[in-house]
Amino acid sequence: MHYPEPISKLIDSFMKLPGIGPKTAQRLAFYVLNMKEDDVVNFSRSLMEVKRDLQFCSVCGHITDIDPCYICSDKNRDRSVICVVQDTKDVIAMEKMREYKGLYHVLHGAISPMDGIGPEDINVASLIERLKDDEVKEIILATNPNIEGESTAMYISRLVKPIGIKSTRLASGLPVGGDLEYADEVTLSKAIEHRTEL
């Protein structure tokens, strides 16, 4: 089906977003067509501001509109602990919990030889620089519990060991409220491995 060029371009633009197929892109484009002009202007302004006004924190790599970010600038944070995560969304997830009071370091990826991603392709060098600060006593490796995340955690822990900084890994296993029968073998294995005494 042929659409006028502006709608076609908008559909193509929506299809560049992850998880958006042709039908959803078409539905979104026609939704935009029916929006009030002020709402469309505000929507486009928000898109431009995200690209123009956001950057990565020069200290931790989290997204921010000020540098350093609000977390690195907060003098009340525990500067002896750095939680190492793969993605900025992981920082947001940790912050929602409101339990962790330390600092972060965002790797922007994980080591994945199959995808051609090595240690030099993620934000490891700046982490090692940060660990030269005598105030840092521990890093928490909070990479994803998959092959890439585990490889990245192991690589970083080996780099950190000679520096004398404690490296810990987030516990993994059965979720609270989960049923044993629905757990996969890896999850059960991790749950057994990281069991705690009562």
Rank of each mutant, 00 (worst) to 15 (best):
S44E: 11
L28C: 04
K36G: 07
A29Y: 02
L47K: 04
I71G: 07
S58Q: 12
V50Q: 06
E37H: 00
L28N: 08
Y70I: 13
D65F: 10
D39E: 13
E49S: 11
K36T: 04
I63E: 13
I71L: 12
V59E: 15
E37N: 00
V41M: 04
F43H: 08
P68G: 04
L28E: 09
A29L: 08
V41W: 02
K36Y: 02
T64A: 09
Y31I: 01
L33E: 04
D67T: 01
V32K: 03
Q26V: 04
D67M: 01
C57V: 09
C57R: 09
M35G: 09
G61R: 03
S58Y: 08
E49F: 07
V59R: 12
D38N: 15
L28R: 09
F30L: 02
E49T: 11
K51C: 07
E37K: 07
V50M: 06
V32M: 05
T24H: 05
S46Q: 14
L28W: 05
A25H: 01
Y70Q: 14
T64K: 03
V50C: 02
N34H: 14
M48G: 06
C60E: 07
E49L: 08
L33N: 02
A29D: 06
T24P: 01
A29G: 05
D65E: 15
A29K: 11
P68H: 07
A29I: 03
D53T: 12
N42C: 01
F30E: 02
F43E: 07
Y70P: 04
M35Q: 13
T24C: 03
Q26G: 04
M48N: 11
H62I: 03
S58N: 14
D39N: 09
H62A: 07
K36W: 05
V40G: 14
S44M: 13
M48W: 05
L47W: 05
L47I: 11
Q26Y: 06
Q55E: 12
M48F: 10
I71V: 15
D53H: 08
F30C: 00
I71C: 09
Y31L: 04
V40K: 15
V59K: 14
C57H: 08
K51M: 08
S44L: 14
R27T: 06
T24Y: 06
H62T: 05
K51H: 10
V41G: 01
